[in-house]
Simulated assay, not measured.
Amino acid sequence: MKNKLVRVKVPASTANLGPGFDAIGMAFQLYTTLEMRLAEQTEIHLVGDELTALPADKSNLLYIVAADLFEQAGLGVPELHLTVSTEVPLTRGLGSSAAAIVAALTAANALAGEPFSREQLFAMASRREGHPDNVGASLFGGIVVAAMPEQADAAVPYIRLAVPEGLETLVVIPDFWLSTEKARSALPDKYERRDAVYAVGHSSLLVAALAQGRLDLLAEAMRDRLHQPYRSALVPGLAEMLADASEHGALGAALSGAGPTTLFFFSGESARESLLRFVARTMADNGISYRTMVLAPDQSGTEIEVLDLSR
């Protein structure tokens, strides 16, 4: 353990995909990379502009999660040397905190001699994040459908699906942060029965459509009444984009996670160009600066490399 360096590469993710609230996640080829080894004194190196606002001491989430795993394994609190870089925009709805949690858990587990299974790591990550969708996608890759169990110490049940062939993703990332706490505070405490039934039907249709590659059903299946209508006020232009995206080449559209990023599924160059024009008009009308990315799905999940420093 003393002469090991562990390097992990963790994909970003989106969650919900409309009605799959806290239950459906999908991984992208946009990565957080973490190197971890034991040290005489803890040092944390944050590489890149995205990470400049984060603490570089033991209050950093990566250290907290890793140290907790060591304690759970009965190994005591470690001193660690961490180097982290990320391509994932922070607090934009692309699973940056989930990727960090998964990175810290998998790296620490490998450094500690793998005292926990992958499923146990998934349960730890899900409970720390509060829901299993983002962490499941980051850990396993592809599309993950999962539900939190009623028992606090039970395994988290999940199904992993391959991303349907031909499905491409455009994300629109506004130039402002939106915390998950603020996005959750916009949600009501109670829902009408008709909205609950609507959510069950559409989330079920969404999972079935993804499992069978029925891209033609996504526009309807991704409609939502649980969270997107309430969060629209926090993301200028969101309501228009969700309502009209299918008329401009989108196979389906959703708020990515808690936002403010909006996600569009599409297929083909002409659909992409049409969507880009539509987004440009909508964002200009709302006075919002933004950037776009076309993201490919990640089908592999977290990759782990263990190096022997004694050689």
Rank of each mutant, 00 (worst) to 15 (best):
P174Y: 02
K182H: 13
S274Y: 07
Y198R: 12
L205T: 09
V197M: 10
S246N: 13
D175Q: 15
S270F: 07
A233F: 11
P260N: 04
E240P: 07
L217P: 00
V207Y: 06
V235A: 14
R277Q: 13
A183Q: 13
T261K: 12
V279R: 09
R225E: 07
G287R: 08
F264S: 09
A208Y: 14
P174M: 01
Q228G: 14
T180D: 05
G268M: 10
A162Q: 10
A253R: 02
K182S: 07
S267T: 13
G257Y: 12
G166C: 10
M222F: 11
E240R: 15
V197R: 07
V207F: 08
E165P: 04
R184S: 10
L170E: 04
S256L: 08
R281S: 13
E220C: 02
V197D: 03
A280S: 09
D224I: 05
E168S: 14
L226N: 04
A271Y: 06
A253Q: 04
F176L: 11
S246Y: 09
M283P: 04
A208V: 09
P229E: 05
E273K: 15
A243H: 06
G201M: 05
L255F: 09
E220A: 07
Y198P: 09
T180Y: 14
I173D: 08
L234H: 10
V235R: 14
K190I: 00
L178A: 14
L170K: 03
T261E: 13
G213W: 00
G166I: 11
E165T: 08
R223W: 02
P188A: 11
R281A: 14
